[in-house]
Write a protein that binds this DNA or RNA. Structure first.
Lengths: 204, 204
DNA sequence: GAGCATACTGAACGTTTGTTCAGTACAGTG
DNA sequence: CACTGTACTGAACAAACGTTCAGTATGCTC
């Protein structure tokens, strides 16, 4: 959409989109050069190598996520349940509908490289802190294993992003879309507050 | 472990392992041939092309999952809560610890190709049926949106497999391992039966 | 205006890729 | 024994890959 002036910006922009769409290995430097209307040499000039470009795109996405996280954390005034559950929604809600960021995030998290691991670790720390605050405020129950519970919440939240297409075909609405997000959040909040299973026999 | 007699079997076995480890694009037919101690020509002879081999491995994995699913479904005698939540555990518990299957499943589900989509759709149908049975038996509450609730359970369950490494580094125990599985299942069952969040103000 | 750094081009290079194919080994059939 | 089909080899090939590099254009500094 936005017309980048410099070739460098265009390369990063195109690479981000193509890497997200097809995966790192399935995109050649010539593809990127053609789409960005630059020569192959310019990519090497700015980033040294294809791997260097990848690192640059990774850093760009992670920086963007840091900004989104800050905004989302600031936007949460008190410890309310609805915020904690769809933290991912709160992040991605700030993005345009056709953004390649969710798809790139998916590759980043599941490629196993250190950048993705660091991102998830940060989110886990955030999830632990958030659950702690909610428990202190009485908005959440103190579970037997708070660390695992926080991880459970974070993983489920992240899974919504990673598998949003599968969810879309399963329930008929993309949870990254407007109506699908509401429906998914409603089901999640309901499950997290009232539970789903009924206890067999409580032996106190 | 098992010594395959025919070159064909060895090719599929090696391809499954390498595809799971490094991804489809990052593995060359020469890698597979070398590891399987066959010539490159034999791969073309049996499978036509690298893509043909991929389809064969996909079919092999999906067939294996069908068997695992049947076994898991049969193994569940009545509609008990503990079974529904960790359905994935029940599947993967049948596999050896170092099996490449979970990693391959991850690629299959998230690559976006029809084989993975079909697999997830089948699981969703299974999840819907299971939740239905549990609700009928009184083991589960009837939620406002059963379809979304079933999808929610399935996605969370699947996410444990997809992100087990991240979970391992977050809580210090791999949920695909023995002790980690118990800890994760405990946290999940606790969340699903007693909830995590406390309702703000019930207005009846 | 000379000098120099920076943005950028595109042909060329060497490597690796998936695929092809002529040929070997061998078991089963008549 | 001759014949046929199947498993299998490995050299060869064209295409695509990431990288290199000599060269052009432009704007800033002295």
């Amino acid at each position: 959409m936005a017309a980048e002036t410099t070739g460098r910006d265009r390369i990063v922009d195109v690479a981000l989109r193509l890497f997200a769409q097809r995966g790192h290995d399935a995109v050649s430097v010539r593809d990127i050069a053609a789409e960005g209307k630059v020569s192959v040499g310019l990519i090497a000039h700015h980033f040294g190598s294809k791997e260097g470009l990848r690192r640059e795109v990774d850093a760009h996405v992670i920086g963007l996520f840091d900004d989104l996280t800050d905004t989302a954390v600031e936007a949460s005034p008190g410890p309310s349940g609805a915020i904690a559950d769809s933290f991912a929604s709160l992040l991605l809600g700030q993005l345009p509908p056709a953004s390649p960021i969710p798809a790139y995030l998916r590759r980043l998290v599941l490629s196993g490289d250190p950048a993705g691991r660091a991102l998830v670790e940060r989110w886990h720390a955030l999830s632990v802190a958030l659950l702690d605050r909610m428990t202190a405020a009485g908005a959440a129950r103190a579970t037997a294993d708070p660390e695992a519970t926080a991880a459970f919440l974070m993983v489920n939240d992240l899974a919504m992003i990673l598998m949003h297409e599968h969810i879309a075909s399963a329930i008929g609405a993309d949870p990254l879309g407007r109506d699908g997000a509401q429906r998914w959040a409603a089901a999640a909040v309901d499950a997290y507050t009232h539970g789903i299973f009924t206890p067999p026999e409580e032996t106190p």
